[in-house]
Design a protein around this nucleic acid. Structure first.
Lengths: 138, 138
DNA sequence: AGTTTTTTTGTAATCAAAACGCAAATTTAA
DNA sequence: TTAAATTTGCGTTTTGATTACAAAAAAACT
């Protein structure tokens, strides 16, 4: 995936708008996952809540970002590093949430091990959230 | 853990009330996980929303039920089958959500495999949600 | 450039979920 | 049976998310 906002927008065939560029830059700069609230808070340009919802949905649909489950029943988002496309996300890495700083990271290099399921259960998607403390807070 | 509502309440040193007994019976009867909304919908006795919130929180704190992450940013709950106590949950089983019937199950017998983390990351809790189709919907 | 078409955005309104305070009711203990 | 402690129900408030629609912006086309 490209590493600049405009390139990504072009690559995914999305129009270039201020909101999209800014939110994308947010993701590119922050190494941790962002929630809707994070974006609303940290983005200086004060975009409308609704626009942010829509932008996240668009990015999600296109396969630019992926969902990360939060332990309190929320959702965060982070860039897809690879092979995700329209409606099909393929992620096999572990997510880590630090209970001290509350940041959530994609551990891209650390793959989810084989998980054995009972007879008759068909797997489609797996989500692993590990909670604990990160190197910075340790 | 006891297998009847009154026994569980006694075991965990909770007062016996209609709401608690009913909600507990709901969990004991249903094999799948329940959300706040599920309980509100299926419990005939029409308990107050707020009471249900508080009851779930009480059960959670005591270690009677545990949280199960939902993919859409929600939370469901299911009984803890073992060794959970005040403020300390210990679960190492896989959760499975069927995308056809939307039910979520604890696969008690299917343990989460060893997950390797980068240097410096300290694990405390792990949550695994597998999505796909269950035997009934297959 | 100027105009048209299409997409995106902001505003307001709506709807649902969750939290809080307090008084009434229920449970337990004395 | 009474008193103390806990739990519940209701009203209110706050917060989060969704929708409809008009205004604004981006791309396409003279």
């Amino acid at each position: 995936m490209e590493n600049n906002a405009l390139g990504i927008l072009r690559q995914y065939d999305l129009r270039h708008t201020d909101t999209r560029e800014n939110i994308l830059n947010g993701f590119l700069q922050k190494s941790s996952a962002l929630s809707h609230g994070d974006i609303e808070t940290y983005l200086t340009d004060g975009f409308d809540r609704v626009t942010i919802y829509r932008t996240l949905k668009t990015f999600l649909d296109k396969g630019i970002i992926h969902k990360i489950l939060d332990d309190n029943g929320g959702v965060k988002y982070a860039l897809c590093k690879d092979q995700c496309a329209l409606g099909h996300h393929h992620h096999d890495h572990v997510h880590f949430k630090c209970s001290a700083c509350n940041e959530t990271f994609c551990l891209e290099k650390f793959l989810i091990p084989e998980i054995i399921l009972p007879e008759g259960y068909q797997r489609k998607e797996i989500n692993v959230l590990v909670q604990g403390t990160c190197p910075k807070c340790n």
